[in-house]
Design a binder for these strands. Structure first.
Lengths: 204, 204, 204, 204
DNA sequence: ACAAGCGGGACTACCCGTTGTT
DNA sequence: AACAACGGGTAGTCCCGCTTGT
């Protein structure tokens, strides 16, 4: 695959991602995607065997980027935080910072978009989404579990539920942000979840 | 409009809601909906002027049901709780109870489904979704505001953010529940948000 | 199904048959068929679920017409001929007469057309063709078998092979007639097969 | 043109012939043909200017092979048979032998395949088919004509019709063999035609 | 209140052929 | 001699919505 070929593929995926987040996979036609590039049908079907193939490639790319960002933030958080709890707080802080820096409206999360059209995708595709959530749960819960070994939380909670809670807060905040057309709610809700952790474990 | 006419309309809306939650509005065709009832095109277009008309009618019905349930829960909570804070806690408790009673997987929230296909809907339709969220925020924030007048929260938070947080937690939990195929996460995350309120204001 | 609906269906089948005989099923597009009627795609897919459905309906109609003509000729032949052998001779004579009356070129046989594109059709469709050939073999062979009981053929032959021979002669003659653009070969070859029967059993 | 080039060309033609006999020229795509080789578009269009060019090249190769076999059989028959009639009988006997040796089902005749999709081919291509049939008619009729000079047939027949009859019998037998999935009918029908000649001219 | 028939257009998938490169 | 990338068009399928007839 030459240089241009990869570029073409990426251009298609970029256009597809924007449209699918805005109107859903089912309502996004291939012509629609192509009209946002300077390509034609021939090019599309050279790179993707079918629309389903595009769906899979897109979510895989999205999951890869997501995991990459997550691991980068996690690495920074692990360096910056001295305790496991601090590391989680820094991690969430980095996401809060990221979301606070949003200029326009948040485009939403492709995982949730796929979840709300799950009937259109096969198991392979849905497993990609599941794995992304489980990666988050695994890494965050591990740190919280270690935190709980040294400091007992104020209320009885499980590390997994806490990890999921952070994820849920973000996903839910995306939905609110989209309907209320207010990008600021995301950062504010992440901050609230950080409050919760502070109160559970004691700040600092 | 006779009795049967209403039934037909409802049957169409029921089938549509199930399909749209499963695969999205864009991917749900009228024929698709009708094949899940025993009706034909003539019947559909007798009750709905267009597919868009169905979309609006459906979200309006959903919002009405949602508001009805909300107000019913709120009324019970207002009776059962002696303080505004307790009322909010009971309200969330009722939702937690409701979600804990889920037999199969949660079908998801139509508001979020519409949010992730916003590009397909007109302003009127989107306003219905927005109003539903604002109704929640208004009523819940009002009670929290009153709670904050008598008891200062452990950390500085706004009543609106707290109200939104409850909503976001639920919406996010729906997404997690759908992808992880685990209906129990919803109740567990609502409980966590109730923990947060307890920690903020002091339990009891 | 109303009166007009049946007409529409027949008009589609008529156009399809002509085109398929001329250029084959695979090369005949639905648009192609429709341009020979005054209908649109909507009408086509109202009457046929798919192109394959059309293929099946077409061959079934063709086989029904074919069987109808065959039984009509057979009934006349049975009345006109006093012996089983004479009945077969009259039957072939009626086909010879029919073919001699051809104005333009012979359009060919749909059974053979399907046979030469067998890879495109499912078993159900191919069974229809097979049954048509077996019907001919059965009825003609039965009469020849009876003929052989009273009169021994000059050479040892089986009634089935003889029946097949008549069919093969006609099918082969169609191919020759089409390539040589000479409709007269068909009648002449049927006559030759009648010669063969005469020589085998003695004319008379 | 090097050695490998010819091989590639032949490989394409081989794959094309198999597919066209199975599903027709119209339904056989270039990609389809290439997927049955290990080549790509570039290779195809290096050897053939267009799909039509392939059609012509294929039928010309087929006609050449056919003529080659015919002339080989004819030469042997001319040596083995002492009279023109015997020569024709031996010729048909050689074909009967050939067909009796068929292991699986008969793939059919490319001439007939083209005839049933005549609308797709230009005059040049169709002339190739016609010439093949006329070659047979010419050579076989010539021998039968000489046979009729010495021995009067039992019934008045023309040498051309007789020659065509042999051809028609084989073509028709191909169709029957394909639909009935019984390769043995071909040899049996050739034998019947040889019976006819015996009865017409007297055996031996 | 609903059924059948159909118009016209959109969508996915594929097809034939071209171009540039190796 | 062959390949990857791509253009532009067409194929089969389906979809939305209108009309006509109970």
């Amino acid at each position: 695959m030459t240089r241009t070929a990869t570029d073409t593929r990426e251009r298609i995926l970029d256009a597809a991602q924007g449209l699918i987040l805005a109107q859903g996979y089912g309502a996004t036609s291939i012509d629609d995607i192509l009209s946002h590039t300077d390509l034609t049908k021939g090019a599309f079907f050279h790179h993707f065997r079918s629309k389903k193939d595009l769906a899979t490639a897109l979510i895989e790319r999205y999951a890869a980027h997501d995991a990459e960002l997550f691991r980068a933030f996690l690495a920074r958080a692990d360096r910056l935080g001295r305790t496991p709890l601090q590391q989680v707080q820094v991690l969430l802080g980095l996401y809060e910072e990221e979301m606070a820096g949003l200029s326009g409206a948040h485009p939403g999360c492709l995982f949730a978009s796929y979840a709300y059209q799950a009937g259109l995708f096969d198991e392979v595709t849905k497993r990609v989404v599941r794995k992304a959530f489980l990666l988050w749960r695994e890494e965050v819960a591990a740190r919280l579990r270690r935190a709980m070994e040294t400091r007992k939380p104020a209320l009885p909670v499980s590390a997994e539920d806490l990890a999921d809670g952070a994820m849920a807060t973000m996903e839910g905040a995306f939905v609110l942000s989209m309907t209320l057309r207010d990008p600021s709610v995301i950062a504010r809700q992440i901050r609230q979840f950080r409050n919760y952790l502070d109160l559970l474990f004691g700040a600092g």
